[in-house]
């Protein structure tokens, strides 16, 4: 996970940092560190630029400086976005839609994946293939029918339409991940519980779900990120209802006017980014095991 420190070691931090546990010569280690440092800089530089633009005062937005923290840094852009724009409303809308989507999506996909993992029923293979096939549907493909469906059911410009659409659209990927993970849990555990008199549902609830925490976290995170980041569906279903706009729609409106609102766009971006990145990095310890456990068996 993080840097391993052995407290008994009295060497200075620098030496400890560069000493391998095993393997490489010091020169090779330096090369590895160098490669990783350069790639880390490429990975985070664009983000630092957004931070830098957000700190610039209004009259210096169009600057050719490459400094990360401008000399005359100000939080004015953040202030303007929070108080004068609809930013808080957009964030709130996104949050309300996203959290309910993620919860509903995880519940439905966790039970479906259990059925796919433990039973051989007619249509099972077709079902799994169908789930894979849904991934091939171009996002723009279903927009016209879904728009018309939403008009007919009166779901245009409502939270309800988006919540339902998002939770369904993330089910296929979630089911694949969870099914792969459940497959790695030995059946003996449930069978022992069944012999002890528990029924299937209790076995699922008491044994499978707690053991699947890594995969469930990944699925929750994916559902959350997908709904939180979606632009296309929100644009189609909410285009004219500015009072329930989600933040991607609002931010795109801000960014549209490059000269005037670039700093505000950057400030808003940083505020949207921080909670999501924190959530993502926090759950990234589950990410690797949750994503790949289904693939690598044994």
């Amino acid at each position: 996970m993080s840097v391993t420190t052995d407290s008994s070691n009295k060497d200075n931090a620098f030496q400890r940092f560069f000493r391998a546990k095993r393997g490489h010569s010091p020169f090779n280690r330096m090369l590895i560190h160098l490669a990783l440092i350069i790639s880390s800089i490429i990975a985070i530089y664009p983000v630092l630029r957004v931070l830098s633009v957000s700190l610039r005062p209004g009259d210096r937005l169009l600057s050719t400086s490459l400094a990360i923290i401008p000399s005359d840094a100000t939080l004015n852009n953040y202030f303007v976005v929070v108080t004068e724009k609809d930013f808080m409303l957009w964030l709130w809308n996104s949050l309300a839609i996203t959290v309910s989507t993620a919860i509903v999506g995880v519940i439905f996909s966790s039970t479906s994946a259990y059925a796919f993992s433990r039973w051989r029923f007619p249509g099972r293979n077709t079902g799994m293939l169908f789930l894979l096939a849904t991934q091939m549907i171009p996002a723009a493909m279903l927009m016209v029918p879904i728009y018309i469906l939403a008009v007919k059911l009166g779901l245009l410009g409502t939270y309800r339409g988006l919540v339902i659409a998002y939770s369904v659209s993330s089910i296929p990927f979630s089911v694949w991940i969870l099914k792969g993970y459940y497959d790695t849990i030995p059946r003996d555990l449930e069978e022992a519980a069944l012999i002890d008199g528990a029924n299937r549902i209790a076995a699922f609830y008491r044994i499978i779900l707690p053991l699947s925490t890594p995969a469930l976290s990944v699925v929750f995170l994916f559902n959350f990120m997908q709904a939180w980041n979606d632009y296309l569906l929100a644009r189609v279903l909410l285009a004219n209802s500015t009072e329930i706009w989600t933040w991607p729609l609002g931010l795109q409106a801000l960014q549209g006017q490059f000269q005037t609102a670039w700093g505000q766009f950057a400030a808003a971006s940083i505020m949207v980014m921080i909670p999501v990145v924190a959530l993502f990095l926090y759950s990234s310890k589950y990410l690797i095991s949750g994503l790949t456990a289904g693939g690598v068996k044994g």
């Binding site: 993080s2 400890r16 985070i44 957004v50 991607p248 971006s269 999501v276």
Partner: peptide, 27 residues
């Protein structure tokens, strides 16, 4: 590789994925 600071590097390298895509693309 068995080097120190892997967790830090991984956090940095994962960042482009963690950022909301719309923001990354617009930025």
């Amino acid at each position: 590789q068995p080097i120190r600071g892997r967790g830090i590097y991984r956090t940095f390298l994962i960042l482009p994925w963690a950022i909301p895509q719309v923001i990354a693309v617009l930025a």
